[in-house]
Amino acid sequence: MSSLPGIGPVTQGRLGEAGIRTVSELKAIGSVEAYRRLKFMLPRQVSLNALYALEAALRGCHWLDLPQDVKMVLQQEAQAIEEAFRRGPVSRCTMC
């Protein structure tokens, strides 16, 4: 995982705790799902910048170099995750 730019030891450790231990695992689930896992584990410590860093790492660039349209999509994804977090768990049973 350390071969990805912008993924330092702290983020690497957090990803490992979230079950994402290899670059191929990160690529398979994508930046948004990785961010979702981290956000639910550490809601106050994981920010939008983490999502930018994950996406940028997968693209092989610095997060500041992400195109603005990509950042806008990531912001929308992060907002949806934040709203889901605030709503809390959802029952699968409508009769429960």
Rank of each mutant, 00 (worst) to 15 (best):
V23G: 01
S91Y: 10
A50M: 05
N49M: 04
D65M: 07
D69W: 06
N49W: 03
L64E: 11
E55M: 02
P5L: 03
R37S: 10
T22K: 02
E33R: 15
A56F: 02
L38R: 02
M95G: 07
L15A: 04
R14V: 04
R21G: 13
M41R: 14
A80H: 12
M1F: 07
E25F: 00
C61H: 01
S91F: 08
Q12V: 05
R59M: 11
E83F: 06
T11V: 08
A34L: 06
L48K: 08
G6K: 06
F85G: 09
E83I: 12
C96R: 12
R59L: 07
E17D: 10
L4P: 13
M41G: 09
P67I: 00
P89Q: 13
T94R: 12
Y52R: 12
E77R: 15
C93Q: 11
Q76G: 10
H62D: 14
Y35N: 08
K39I: 03
Q68N: 09
R37F: 05
V90H: 11
S91E: 15
G6Y: 08
Q12E: 14
A18Q: 11
A80V: 10
Q79W: 03
K39T: 04
S24E: 15
R14M: 14
S2C: 01
D69H: 14
K27H: 06
M95Y: 07
P89E: 15
A80P: 02
G88R: 09
V32F: 00
A18F: 09
L48W: 01
V32C: 08
F40M: 12
I20T: 07
S91H: 12
F40I: 09
A80C: 08
V73M: 14
E77D: 15
A84Q: 15
G88V: 10
L54F: 05
G19P: 08
L58Q: 09
S31I: 00
L74I: 06
V90A: 15
V23L: 12
L15E: 03
G88S: 09
V10S: 08
A53F: 00
R36C: 05
M72L: 15
Q75K: 15
V32N: 07
Q76W: 00
G6R: 03
T22W: 04
P9C: 00
S24I: 05
S31R: 01
R14L: 14
L74N: 06
I7H: 02
I20F: 02
H62S: 08
G16Y: 03
R37N: 09
Q79E: 15
Y35I: 07
R37M: 06
L42Q: 13
A57D: 07
S47V: 01
A18L: 10
D65T: 04
M95K: 12
I29Q: 09
E25I: 02
T11W: 01
E25N: 01
L58R: 06
S24F: 04
